[in-house]
C-alpha cells in the first residue's frame, strides 16, 4: 500500500512460487491516475507487440479491451456521478456531478478457469501460485479458450503480428515470479493502485480499503471478487465504484463447462428423440 516504500509487497522480493502461496492482484481505481505505466511495463517486459495506432475518441482509452496483445488495459470511465465527496462544476453544490474513473483491467486468473477447462492440448496450466498460464510452445491455436473465458480476456493474435495464431493473455509475469520478482505492472504502478501480494492478505486489505472509502463518502465502493459463481473466485480482483457492468465486468461470471451436463443431456435426449422418430417413421410407412 502507499507509503510503505521498499517494504511494500510491490517492491519486496518473495518466494511465493517455491512456497506454493496463492498470489493475487488487488486493483484500486480510487488511487489510479490513468498513467498507463502498467500497460507499457507489461508490453516491455513480456515483449508484446503494439497492436496498431488507432485513436478511439473514447476518453483517453486508445487500448479498447484486453486481448492477445493487450494484457493490461486501463479503462477510462466518464460518468455523471459523484466521486466520494468531490464536488465539481461551477455551482459548487454537487448538482452537476461528474467523475472520471480509471481502472487497470487484467486477466482474472480464475479458480475455475474457463480457458484452462476448454484447452484440448494441455497448453494452459495452473501454476504453483494459483495463476493460469498459457504455454505458447504447446498452444495449437484452436481458439476454444477464447470463447470459454467468461471475461473476454484471452484471444488469438492476428496476422501480421509476431507469433500470430496462438492464444495469449497475462502470464501473471510467471517468469518474474519464479525469480522472486513482482509482476511488471505492479512493480511500476506509481500510486500502488495495482497491489501484488498473497491473495489472503490482499483480500483482508481490500475489505479494509472498502470500509475506509465508505467512511469517507464513497458510498458506492465495493469489491468485485465473485466467489459464489462457478469461477469460484478470482486471483485478480478489483475495487469498483458503482456497478460492475460499467467496467465491462460481468456481475455473475460463469465457467462455460457448468453447462456441459445440460448440454450432454439435451444432446442425448435429442439422439433418443431422433431414433424414436426414425423408428416411428419406419413403422408408420411399414
Amino acid at each position: 500500500m502507499i507509503g510503505e516504500g521498499t517494504q511494500s509487497t510491490n517492491q519486496r522480493r518473495h518466494n511465493y512460487v517455491r512456497e506454493n502461496v496463492d498470489v493475487g492482484f488487488f486493483t484500486d481505481p480510487t488511487v489510479c491516475i490513468g498513467c498507463k505505466a502498467c500497460e507499457v511495463a507489461c508490453k516491455e517486459w513480456n515483449e508484446v507487440p503494439d497492436d496498431g495506432f488507432t485513436w478511439s475518441g473514447s476518453s483517453y482509452d486508445n487500448t479498447g479491451r484486453l486481448g492477445a496483445s493487450t494484457w493490461r488495459h486501463v479503462l477510462f470511465l466518464e460518468q455523471d456521478r459523484q466521486k466520494g465527496n468531490q464536488i465539481v462544476g461551477s455551482s459548487g453544490d454537487g448538482a452537476d456531478p461528474f467523475r472520471w474513473v480509471f481502472l487497470s483491467d487484467v486477466c482474472k486468473h480464475c479458480e475455475e478457469a474457463g480457458c484452462l477447462e476448454a484447452c484440448p492440448t494441455g497448453s494452459i496450466i495452473r501454476t504453483e501460485v494459483g495463476s493460469v498460464f498459457v504455454q505458447n510452445d504447446v498452444c495449437n491455436g484452436c481458439g476454444y479458450c477464447v470463447v470459454s473465458c467468461p471475461f473476454g480476456v484471452i484471444d488469438r493474435r492476428p496476422e501480421p503480428l509476431a507469433d500470430a495464431g496462438g492464444a495469449f493473455k497475462c502470464t501473471f509475469c510467471y517468469d518474474r515470479q519464479k525469480s522472486g520478482l513482482v509482476p511488471a505492472c505492479a512493480k511500476v504502478c506509481p500510486t500502488e493502485s495495482i497491489v501484488f501480494g498473497r491473495l489472503d492478505d490482499l483480500r483482508a486489505r481490500a475489505h479494509e480499503r472498502v470500509r475506509q472509502l465508505r467512511e469517507n463518502g464513497y458510498g458506492d465502493a465495493q469489491l468485485y471478487d465473485p466467489q459464489e459463481t462457478s469461477v469460484r473466485g478470482i486471483h485478480a480482483f478489483f475495487l469498483i465504484l458503482g456497478e460492475p457492468e460499467a467496467y465491462g465486468l460481468p456481475p455473475k461470471p460463469e465457467v462455460p463447462t457448468i453447462y456441459l451436463r445440460s448440454a450432454w443431456l439435451s444432446a442425448f435426449a435429442t439422439m433418443i428423440a431422433a431414433i424414436l422418430v426414425v423408428f416411428a417413421t419406419f413403422f408408420f410407412f411399414a
Binding site: 507499457v40 503494439d50 495506432f53
Partner: peptide
C-alpha cells in the same frame, strides 16, 4: 516508441 505511441496515437 510504439508502446507509448499506440496509447495516444493522434492529435485531438
Amino acid at each position: 516508441l510504439s508502446h507509448l505511441a499506440e496509447l495516444q496515437p493522434e492529435m485531438f
